[in-house]
């Protein structure tokens, strides 16, 4: 099916909306095998995200001005925003996880926005990347929950406010929803980014037909604007859900 599809499309409209997500080695032949240490486009765009974060948070704040410079005030706004979010949602005692949450938020935010550059590679559109992020959150939350509360953490699944007969059923539901968290957490982020980029590529394919190309170009512009919003909102949602899960781990009582 696959090769046939490629063969058919060469004549008219060319849709390869998922080709932009292919992981390929940065140096050497396209067909080279990708082993774990190969420098790929993933490496490039993650490195760019890291460099952008360092540029903003290390070189931007180098002045340590009482009256901040522009880049310093951007860094301060992001710091204050995340700090307030952790404090409000997860509670005062979650502040010691603030660097961890800040790391996740900044990486996702910068990877999302760098992925929106034309010809770039969206690292957060890959389920492997988002799954690692979500699993890291899941494991942290679970370990913190058991270390902080011991077996009382299991009270999260035993809804003591419900009637006794309902509690086992609710416990099963709560258990399932707990283990579905990393799945939905990762697929939400990866799927959103992938969907936006794929839709843009589909409309870019329409732009090849003269009759509808103005419509296609306007649509790409509109969807690009939407994706700018989605990139920020998804990073925010990932972070705030991390805070919510962390609150569950620190204060498991319902």
């Amino acid at each position: 099916m696959a090769t046939e599809a490629h063969g058919e499309e060469t004549g008219g409209l060319v849709f390869h909306p998922l080709d932009q997500f292919i992981v390929k080695p940065l140096f050497g032949e396209i067909g080279d095998p990708v082993s774990w240490y190969t420098i790929t486009n993933v490496t490039l765009w993650m490195a760019l995200a890291v460099l952008a974060i360092i540029a903003l948070f290390v070189f931007g704040t180098r002045g340590r001005g009482i009256v901040p410079s522009r880049t310093q005030s951007i860094g301060e706004i992001l710091y204050g925003f995340t700090y307030k979010m952790v404090e409000d949602v997860a509670g005062k005692d979650a502040i010691k996880f603030f660097p961890y949450i800040m790391t996740l938020f900044m990486f996702i935010l910068f990877a999302n926005y760098l992925g929106l550059l034309p010809m770039s590679f969206a690292t957060t559109s890959h389920i492997a990347v988002t799954a690692v992020l979500a699993l890291a959150v899941f494991l942290t939350v679970t370990i913190v929950g058991f270390v902080k509360n011991g077996t009382k953490f299991l009270g999260l699944f035993w809804v003591s406010s419900a009637p006794l007969a309902l509690r086992p059923i609710l416990a099963i539901i709560e258990l399932i929803s707990y283990f579905v968290r990393p799945v939905s957490h990762s697929i939400r982020l990866g799927g959103n980014i992938m969907a936006g980029h794929a839709v843009m590529k589909v409309f870019a394919g329409f732009a090849a037909v003269a009759a509808i190309s103005p419509f296609a170009v306007v649509s790409i512009t509109a969807i690009y604007g939407l994706e700018m919003l989605v990139a920020g909102v998804q990073a925010y949602v990932f972070t705030i859900l991390t805070c919510v899960y962390l609150k569950d781990a620190l204060h498991p009582s319902h």
Binding site: D88, S184, R188, G191, N192, A195, V233, Y236, V237, V244
Partner: peptide, 16 residues
Amino acid sequence: ATLFIGIAFAEALGIF
């Protein structure tokens, strides 16, 4: 914040 969480949950199912 609750609004965004709600939107994210609703949207995630569409993404699925």
